[in-house]
């Protein structure tokens, strides 16, 4: 590995390099972590610009904590998922005072072909169904079934037991199935 090759280094090693003034470490961490944080924030909030605000704030908190980071004590992504989820919860609490019909529907001018429209409709339907879940259920389902994390890591992020994670994901999936089953045909799925 070349001395300046940051691609092979772990997140925590990069964070310590960043705290020591390494510019390449900042770039490597941004490339590696921003997509993860943004995707998670988007799944929890369902709105792109709000997700960007949350992702930027979560990353800012990471930059600030870097000088005090102790290598090997915590996983950077676990810490970031937790910070992102907390920031999303704050946003959702503020949002509750706003009526659902007042929130503008996101528009995508580029989607024109029928297949693209239906793909988008499917993803929107999933997002709407996710948004209707209780926050903890939504977070557990997103981490397990969209981010693809294992239950022990989700338990660490959410600071609960793995059994509680299993319970949350199971209940979340049941609620999603129920909500989406009524829209099978609309979403392009036929009965068996």
């Amino acid at each position: 590995m070349a001395f300046d090759d940051t691609t092979e280094l772990g997140d925590d090693a990069l964070l310590i390099l960043f705290a020591n003034g390494d510019k390449q470490a900042a770039e490597a961490l941004t490339r590696r972590l921003v997509p993860v944080v943004l995707a998670h924030a988007f799944r929890l909030l369902g709105e792109r610009s709000e997700a960007e605000d949350v992702a930027q704030e979560a990353m800012m908190r990471l930059w600030k904590v870097a000088p005090d980071w102790r290598q090997g004590e915590a996983k950077v992504t676990t810490w970031l998922y937790r910070v992102t989820a907390n920031l999303c919860t704050d946003r959702l609490r503020k949002r509750r005072s706003v009526a659902l019909e007042d929130v503008p529907e996101p528009l995508d001018e580029t989607a024109s072909a029928p297949e693209q429209i239906q793909d988008k409709a499917r993803m929107d339907a999933l997002q709407v169904a996710l948004s209707e879940l209780p926050e903890r259920q939504r977070q557990a389902v997103v981490l397990r079934h969209i981010e693809g994390l294992q239950n022990p890591e989700i338990a660490e992020i959410m600071e609960i037991s793995t059994e509680a994670v299993e319970s949350l994901t199971a209940r979340g999936k049941r609620a999603l199935t129920q909500a989406l089953s009524q829209r099978r045909e609309e979403l392009g799925y036929s009965d068996a």
Partner: peptide, 22 residues
């Protein structure tokens, strides 16, 4: 899309979401 159960439809939607990160 032909699917036998609602559960399979949900798994299909999860897979699609996973392949389209923000």
């Amino acid at each position: 899309r032909n699917h036998t159960t609602d559960e399979q439809m949900l798994e299909d939607l999860f897979a699609e979401a996973q392949s389209q990160p923000a």
